[in-house]
Design a protein around this nucleic acid. Structure first.
Lengths: 351, 351
DNA sequence: ATGAAAGCGCTAACAT
DNA sequence: ATGTTAGCGCTTTCAT
């Protein structure tokens, strides 16, 4: 009985077959039109194009991936997206630059923990992405060795996680050294340091190291009572620790925070305590987040050139995806000091 | 010639077949063990588990998706990730809550443009995700109708984009009304308004409407010279427009900004201009970003309860994915005023 | 220049 | 309780 079968059922999402049937060609031809590969007669191509438009065909990326191994999706794993301002602005830059190259970004928050980072590096999610950018803070090289081969991966931030991986790092030591030298140059000798736990965070460890180098170069030793370790690098922690340090403990004439959120919290605390900034206490951070340029006073900090980092990271990942065999590359981005009113009154506009 | 063929080549990424061969079972059994579906003898399961562990098998999500139509990936489309603080914190909340439910988030920046939002709604990327959360600001209902059926979609923010879609909205009008009433209650009568273009941004339009409602309720009309339309809702725009408004144009005793970034920029500008806040000019924003609690003075604003919004959004999307047929739901989240030092000196701690 | 068909890794219906 | 197999939508060799 002819006509009984539902031969041209375009029920759900349209596929290549639907387009082919409508245009009266084979699916191969449609595929070639979609991908601009092979040569298709102009007339045929036009017919296919209009069929595509008329039923609103969109290629199924999962099927394409299954066939080609490419999705156009890359992962970005960061400790946290909004606590620090830094990862927020970094993520925005990565998403923007990836989009320029036709890539979409899948974001994962690792919580800055070893487990979280391992999951990002090796979890089943990797099978939907072409490559991964990971800002690892807790992992060490041994963890990575144990994991075995990983698929295209670029490590951001400090840790060198093994020669097989690409790294785009930022001069963490240099950043802390620059700020410390600046504070010492202003005659400050009692620097309160707000840092993450160096045993947990590689970045904290490196920044602390840079700070100590600068102190040593000036013939100074770190003051035991003036280092405060925070669990979370956010405004609230900066605020709390400065209030506590002011209440008890040795007096200080400067605050050096390992990131701007801590520094901005510190700034706010000093206001509430009635301490003059920068007169009595100078404050500096690291990261140059947007709010550092609008705080009162504006915050002296170090610019990590996130845009450069994001650009380099995406490019390195793309190259790695294209050639999995080449040796791991290491790019280091130079940091620059931004002196503002929180350390130097004359750097602040009148007001 | 026997032994020539590379029969057990486990070359690349391990598959179900590799596990099955190693455990001496069929791929169906492996699949059942992986998915905890059907019943598999404990001994067999154990054998399979150890095979999985030994070769580090991870399911290929693209293949699974092709078969089942599920990836565990949801999209989040926002205008911009880092300009406003709001989307940053919202994204972080969405990523966190999605992760709790075993979902990963694919982030897209639409630039707040119609094209960008259409692309997010309908582009080929949709085929790698189970559903989409979109904070649309430029799209209207007609655009969506033209697109045809869309796949699971939850719209965040203001616009009602059609009855077939789920919406999780925030009381934009109410928010602006609350702030305006607060400013009027303080005796301020000349409110400088910093807003996005209401013709472009639905949120701006609603917030402006709420502002006008409050004015009207007090028997006041909006002052023509005191509304400044910004292109980008960021700190720099807030700063620039306040400086310009102060230089020329009618004088004002309050600033109402449609978001906190603009308000924080305004705060900074007033400092530089030597204008006392809140004495001479009161400043208020909307969004309650983290920095609003650490600025000097702290910023009066409206809390949109992002965590609640994110939670509700992810839940609604999950339900929509599970049942595509049910009618569109609309959830509206109530906004709350947070009065701080930028409008009320007594709300600021001593300092 | 175009078509036919194999197969990517997986799930599930169907067999045993 | 376990195995066999079709087919999801796509790209791509191999024919024509």
């Amino acid at each position: 009985m002819p006509g009984t079968q539902d031969d041209d059922a375009p029920r759900g999402v349209p596929t290549l077959h639907d387009v082919a049937r409508l245009a009266g060609v084979s699916i191969k031809t449609v595929s070639e039109v979609v991908n601009r590969t092979g040569r298709v007669a102009a007339a045929t191509a036009a017919r296919v194009e209009s069929a595509i438009a008329s039923i609103g065909y969109q290629p199924n990326l999962s099927a394409r991936r299954l066939r080609t191994g490419r999705t156009g999706v890359v992962g970005l794993a960061v400790p946290e997206l909004s606590l620090s301002g830094y990862f927020n602005e970094l993520s925005a830059a990565v998403v923007r630059i990836a989009a320029e190259r036709g890539l979409t970004v899948l974001i994962e928050q690792t919580g800055g923990t070893r487990e979280g980072e391992l999951r990002a590096l090796r979890g089943p999610r990797r099978s939907v992405m072409d490559g991964l950018l990971i800002n690892a803070v807790a992992l060490d090289e041994q963890d990575v060795q144990d994991l075995g081969p990983l698929g295209p991966t670029v490590v951001l931030g400090e840790r060198r996680l093994g020669p097989q991986l690409d790294h785009v790092t930022f001069g963490n030591e240099e950043a802390a050294r620059l700020v410390t030298e600046h504070l010492l140059g202003l005659g400050r000798r009692h620097i309160l340091v707000l840092t993450g736990d160096p045993a947990v965070s590689a970045s904290a460890a490196r920044r602390l190291a840079g700070h100590h180098q600068a102190l040593a170069a000036a013939g100074l030793a770190p003051a035991a009572g003036l280092v405060r370790v925070v669990a979370v690098w956010d405004h609230a922690a900066g605020y709390r620790h400065v209030v506590e340090a002011h209440r008890g403990g040795p007096s200080f004439d400067a605050v050096l925070a390992v990131n701007d959120s801590l520094a901005l919290g510190a700034l706010r605390a000093l206001h509430d305590l009635g301490v003059d900034v920068p007169g009595t206490v100078a404050v500096a951070g690291i990261d140059d987040v947007v709010d550092a340029r609008f705080s009162h006073p504006r915050l002296t900090t170090v610019d990590p050139h996130r845009d450069v980092l994001a650009e380099l990271a995406v490019r390195t990942l793309t190259e790695r995806i294209a050639d999995r065999r080449r040796p791991g590359a290491v790019h280091e981005i130079e940091a620059h000091l931004r002196v503002r009113g929180s350390t130097l009154a004359s750097a602040e506009p009148p007001g």
